[in-house]
Design a binder for these strands. Sequence first.
DNA 1: GGGATCGTGCAAGTTTCTTGCATCCCGATG
DNA 2: CATCGGGATGCAAGAAACTTGCACGATCCC
Lengths: 153, 153
Amino acid sequence: MTPLDDYDRAILRLLQENNQMPQREIGAAVNLSAPSVQRRIRRMEAEGVIAANVAQVSGEAVGLPLTIIVTVELVSETPDAIDAAKRSFREAPEVQQCHYVTGETDFVLVVCVASMPAYEEFTRRVFFGSGNVKKFRTMVSMDRVKTGLRLDI
Amino acid sequence: MTPLDDYDRAILRLLQENNQMPQREIGAAVNLSAPSVQRRIRRMEAEGVIAANVAQVSGEAVGLPLTIIVTVELVSETPDAIDAAKRSFREAPEVQQCHYVTGETDFVLVVCVASMPAYEEFTRRVFFGSGNVKKFRTMVSMDRVKTGLRLDI
DNA sequence: GGGATCGTGCAAGTTTCTTGCATCCCGATG
DNA sequence: CATCGGGATGCAAGAAACTTGCACGATCCC
């Protein structure tokens, strides 16, 4: 993979904020021509530096106002059990993010739901359904202080 | 705010995956003309349903391969102390996400760093620097099972 | 010094976005 | 029951942005 230079990093900083900025403007901001900007963006997309170009949708606006962070501890930590858990979390549409982590806790989930009853239904289906969840801790987000994935590069 | 109809939701589902799909293709997928698609996107952007259009950058690709989830407990939970903590977390470039949550834990952070020494430096600067962090629990992500913010709408 | 490689800017060609306009649908009103 | 008005739609033309071929310049390695 081609290492990133200062131009690449400057372009990424802009695209992380707004990936619809015209190449012409990006070029003006970083002192490159529009075609050069485009070729760099293309290259970074091909190399996976830019993983995706997406619209961020407001959970409140689409009827999912609750963000809940859950730490999950499993009964069995065999590779098969871990894989089964990963699969069930990946498939659950409520789960926005899922990390398999070190320490006593096995998983940390970020869940978006419409209401607490919807959350309870989720826990019944996903946690109690498997029979392999020893315990989980629910932390309701009162304030999304910072969100998104703006890497400092 | 105008309630979302099925067209809006279909458009959002596509834009959450790829916000660079041509309006013509979106229109073909949802049975609308390109101008109609555009007007709906514009409206949803203006109303905040679409919060942002961003490029997702791979942490590995830019030299930040470690994702760490941290739960933080404060000594003092007065409004002023909470606000000060929020500010310091918001300002720290390593912090990708920060939630102020209910329960014994006060904050949950998602942090991206280059290495464990860089993480230790971060904890010294941000946690011990304030003098108001009672304790924190470090969970290193071994597998980003699921990431991003794809809402099921 | 010579030559290959890579990135750049320019400019033309192509695609996409944008907008004015006429039409249609649907609910409210007389 | 007919009519009116608001809002959304599709079409088409114009504007903007993206894409690509080409020549030039820098750099590195003989």
